[in-house]
């Protein structure tokens, strides 16, 4: 059965607000993530994109609103929810003094992955890091760390991916690697929420584009109705100019 034929709502974001001190960063975000679909979230710096991802990943609590994973609030069973998603952020999130393999094994163990050793070796092979698997991560280049992040996603086998600027610092080869992984991931019924300024890199597999402006999702566009150049134009209009100016 093709899972994309009948998409399920995996994650449902309802009216999320977030205050930071005196400032309100998110002002009522509602968003649905469906299986087999990917959503590209674009917006200016400081629009609240990364904050939204942190809230969705359960790293922050929203000041208001709720997040439903398969119709169940994520606050009710956080551990089950945390098993279901993968995360890439600006930080590499690896221990510099552990080797690549040790890092993967550590996070894999915490995620209770079965057949961990084989999966780790396989992921290292696919990301082309086998030759460096015993080096400590602190000697890795940015690109290698990013690829190691992709390897971590491969072993943890999530259902939802939150990717915050995953393309930054990647060479073309690694972009292909990531896109191939994301394509497979989608065809298996996963859902992706992506933040990126590199529209050309992620246009092909974005099904929906959401414009986050000043803490509000101003509009959502099905990217099927839009060519890449139209999207780029929209993107520049929406994100680099204030709507009222």
């Amino acid at each position: 059965m093709n899972p994309n034929a009948n998409p399920v709502t995996l994650l449902s974001v309802r009216n999320i607000h977030k205050h930071f001190g005196y400032k309100q960063v998110l002002k009522g975000i509602s968003l649905d993530l469906h299986s087999g679909k990917s959503t590209l979230l674009v917006g200016r710096n400081g629009a609240g994109k990364s904050t939204l991802i942190k809230i969705l990943a359960g790293l922050m609590r929203p000041s208001n609103g709720e997040i439903l994973y398969r119709k169940e609030s994520i606050a009710d069973n956080p551990e089950k929810y945390r098993k279901a998603f993968g995360l890439i952020t600006h930080a590499t999130m690896f221990y510099g003094d552990l080797s690549a393999r040790e890092n993967l094994l550590f996070f894999g163990r915490l995620k209770k992955i079965t057949d961990l050793n084989e999966k780790v070796e396989h992921a290292l092979l696919r990301t082309g890091l086998s030759h460096a698997s015993d080096l400590t991560v602190k000697v890795f280049s940015t690109g290698m760390s990013k690829r190691l992040n992709i390897a971590r996603l491969m072993i943890t086998d999530p259902e939802i991916l939150f990717l915050d600027e995953p393309y930054s610092g990647l060479d073309l080869e690694s972009i292909d690697l990531l896109n191939k992984y994301l394509g497979d991931f989608k065809s298996k019924g996963g859902t992706i929420l992506l933040i990126s300024h590199q529209i050309d890199a992620c246009y092909d597999f974005s099904d929906k584009v959401a414009f986050l402006i000043k803490g509000v999702i101003e509009r959502e566009i099905e990217s099927g109705n839009l060519s890449q150049s139209e999207l780029l134009e929209q993107y520049q209009n929406q994100t680099y100019m204030r709507p009222n100016e």
């Binding site: 990943a57 359960g58 790293l59 551990e79 089950k80 945390r82 098993k83 998603f85 995360l87 952020t89 600006h90 930080a91 590499t92 999130m93 690896f94 221990y95 510099g96 996070f107 915490l110 995620k111 209770k112 991560v137």
Partner: peptide
Amino acid sequence: QQEKENGCIEALLVSPVN
């Protein structure tokens, strides 16, 4: 400080661990 260095604490906190 070790956990904060590369943002490891975030990876630790999104693990399905109490």
